[in-house]
């Protein structure tokens, strides 16, 4: 994805969120006055509530957004499980949240096979998010194959960083 556009989308999403929180009081859907008065004093920003957008950037398992894979594999590794369950929970709690899963491969082998492999990795992550509360329309998958390496040396260390699926929020809530 084009970085400036991604930043713009993010900025719009954040601006949108800000606007929503302010408007919440006057929204017809949220017209119950009892609930509104209840919400204001009992929702401090440090709240662990799964609908608080700040949590996405503070809770470690939500801040973490990359799952790594073994060579020519798309099986989710145990160290990525907690992180992915967290994002699944976030999707369940925030029906408006949208994720683009970007699948990647290391440089070894042919490019189009690696595009397919990247998609398979994205799909593995999607399946896990859906099994943990996410819904189909919340998660899209796009593969970059070996075209977007994080690291460009031809070494085992570098390759292990490039075999990944990245969670990119296109809408947080």
């Amino acid at each position: 994805m084009n970085t400036p556009i991604r930043v713009l989308v993010l900025a719009l999403a954040v601006a949108g969120l800000g606007a929503c929180t302010k408007k919440e009081v006057v929204k017809p859907m949220q017209s119950d006055p009892v609930r509104t008065t209840e919400q204001t004093p009992t929702q401090p920003m440090q709240d662990e509530s799964w609908t608080n957008p700040a949590l996405l950037d503070s809770k470690p398992c939500l801040v973490s957004r990359i799952a790594y894979f073994d060579y020519d594999q798309a099986t989710i590794k145990s160290e990525a499980l907690e992180m992915l369950k967290c994002h699944g929970k976030w999707l369940a709690a925030n029906p408006g949240a949208r994720i683009s899963l970007e699948g990647h491969a290391d440089e070894r082998g042919s490019r189009e096979y690696n595009v397919a492999l990247g998609e398979r990795r994205g799909n593995s992550v999607r399946d896990l998010l859906l099994a943990n509360g996410g819904r189909g329309e919340q998660v899209g998958v796009v593969s970059y194959g070996e075209e977007r390496p994080i690291c460009t040396d031809s070494s085992d260390n570098c390759w292990s960083k490039n075999r990944r699926a990245e969670i990119v929020y296109t809408a947080k809530q």
Partner: peptide, 28 residues
């Protein structure tokens, strides 16, 4: 483009190239 291209392929008469582009947001 600022996004990758892949897999150029010639038509048999040499007049056309087919290729993959990532230039559209979120897809190939």
């Amino acid at each position: 483009n600022s996004e990758p291209f892949l897999s150029p392929s010639w038509s048999p008469d040499g007049r056309y190239l087919a290729y993959v582009s990532f230039e559209r947001q979120g897809g190939h």
